[in-house]
Design a protein around this nucleic acid. Structure first.
Length: 258
DNA sequence: AATGCATTCAACCGCGAGTAA
DNA sequence: ATTACTCGCGGTTGAATGCAT
């Protein structure tokens, strides 16, 4: 049995969006909010498929988009995150407020790849290009605890997700990166801002998921976060690696762990 | 000014994950 | 357990634009 098409292709527009279509989409989402992409086009009076509407909104029309050129700091952040996460553009975008996965993907392919090549670094492996290619490549996989309950030490990993690092840690390639990559689900359903619990700001350690660490300066409880930091960023004066100073740790990037 | 090549980026496509029935 | 459906992601495409000749 074949997969049903996402929309009635014969009656949908394709290609570039017109100003009128943009206006309709914006007006509809302002009035009704995001979601229900399949039914949105009909409700909004658009001859587009839901996927197209979603993409247009997320990548172009959203009011919180930054647009404009990437800064040098953003460049370096993308490179570091890519060395850690690979082509997980949505995860990377989650660390760059105002940037979309599509935008970052395009920027990577058009600018950063070349930039790394010029530095003599293979953009795929983040290793020097002249290094032997048969070396082990690190992969970091997130495995559902439900699938591998018996392999997980619950005490060490109460969030229920396993961070498996296989040989040759990335840290060797990016010595300034703290690769304590740890994932834990949100402990509270109504907690919308992971950096704030009951109106309190979390300390930097806790915002990185390092509850109870020696650097913890607050009494906060565990929160959902992907821990990706720089070794030099264990205090508040360090480089704002995840945009944490700006208070923008986006939960969108954690939806894959639900 | 005309042409051809290179680059950029918005948009499309197909697939997998999650979920309700 | 199975099926059908929606959503979101990553890879790819192609039109628009910039640049060199």
């Amino acid at each position: 049995m074949g997969r049903s098409p996402c929309c009635e292709k014969a009656h949908t527009n394709k290609g570039a969006w017109t100003k009128e279509e943009d206006d309709r989409l914006i007006a509809y989402i302002r009035a009704h909010g995001e979601g229900c992409w399949r039914s949105l086009p009909k409700a909004a009076g658009l001859l587009r498929c839901g996927k197209s509407c979603r993409l247009r909104w997320i990548n172009y029309l959203r009011p919180d988009l930054k647009r404009g050129n990437f800064t040098e700091e953003e460049d370096e952040l993308i490179i570091k995150l890519h060395s850690l996460l690979g082509n997980k553009w949505s995860l990377i975008a989650g660390r760059l407020p105002g940037r979309t996965d599509n935008e970052i993907k395009n920027y990577w392919n058009t600018h950063i790849r070349r930039k790394l090549m010029n530095r003599g670094i293979d953009p795929a492996t983040h290793r020097p290009i002249n290094e032997p290619s048969n070396q082990e490549v690190t992969t970091i996989s997130f495995t559902s605890a439900a699938a591998k309950e018996d392999t997980i030490n619950k005490d060490k990993n109460p969030g229920g997700f396993e961070c498996k690092e296989e040989k040759d840690p990335v840290q060797e390639r990016c010595p300034d990166l703290n690769l304590d990559l740890r994932i834990s689900p949100p402990c509270s359903q109504n907690q919308t801002d992971p950096l704030k619990i009951e109106g309190r700001n979390l300390c930097f350690s806790c915002s990185l998921g390092l509850q109870n660490s020696k650097n913890c300066s607050c009494t906060c409880i565990g929160i959902g976060s992907v821990v990706v930091g720089t070794s030099s960023s264990t205090n508040n004066s360090g480089y704002d690696f995840l945009g944490l100073k700006a208070g923008v740790l986006d939960y969108r990037s954690l939806e894959m762990m639900k």
